[in-house]
């Protein structure tokens, strides 16, 4: 089934929630994302059994969440995208639809700061529990030290006060 027919099928069930299309999928409304995902998994012709990847992209003024779905029996795939505002990124969790969303959403929360409602156990997964900030956002600055360990290491080849350039850092 090609991408346009899949989008038409979803549009048939959720006429107002499907927004702009693109080559491999479509934007959808953030409130109805969970219902659309449930439909994609349970519908006979789509049968998207697997959520391959769930990630976020920081586009400067807003965040974009990207869901890659695939069906092993029908051998087709689809991309769903959702736009969220940067300071208040809240969306429903799809953990009840695909169990793999559990850890993937925890990673998204840890690195981007997106809040997932109704997630069974939303806490940091990659970074220590007392880390400040969300690293993969574009405006993140790393701390100068963590628990007494300093963040940088003096390079003995570079004279004091200068930064690394190709002339002085190649020995």
């Amino acid at each position: 089934m090609d991408v346009q027919s899949q989008i038409n099928l979803i549009k048939g069930k959720f006429p107002n929630e499907v927004l702009e299309n693109f080559a491999t999928g479509t934007f959808v409304n953030a409130e109805k994302l969970k219902a659309i995902c449930q439909f994609c998994r349970d519908n006979e012709e789509l049968s998207m059994q697997v959520l391959t990847c769930m990630t976020a992209v920081d586009l400067g003024d807003h965040l974009e969440l990207v869901y890659h779905l695939i069906s092993y029996s029908k051998k087709h795939d689809l991309v769903l995208k959702v736009t969220l505002p940067r300071d208040n990124a809240v969306i429903d969790s799809v953990e009840s639809v695909w169990k793999t969303a559990d850890w993937q959403e925890r990673e998204c929360f840890d690195l981007f700061g997106v809040n997932f409602k109704n997630h069974p156990d939303l806490r940091r997964i990659m970074l220590p529990d007392d880390w400040q900030g969300h690293p993969l956002r574009k405006d993140y600055t790393p701390p100068t030290e963590y628990h007494g360990m300093s963040h940088t290491r003096k390079n003995p080849l570079i004279p004091e006060g200068q930064s690394a350039t190709t002339e002085n850092s190649n020995g």
Partner: peptide, 29 residues
């Protein structure tokens, strides 16, 4: 298993976003 790469470019010489979804991450869960 399946290594899934998702690369977003904004026209410059550095990527905007590189996402790697590896099989061991989901196997741990």
């Amino acid at each position: 298993g399946e290594l899934f790469y998702y690369v977003v470019s904004d026209g410059s010489s550095k990527p905007l976003r590189v996402k790697i979804r590896a099989g061991s991450f989901t196997a741990m869960s």
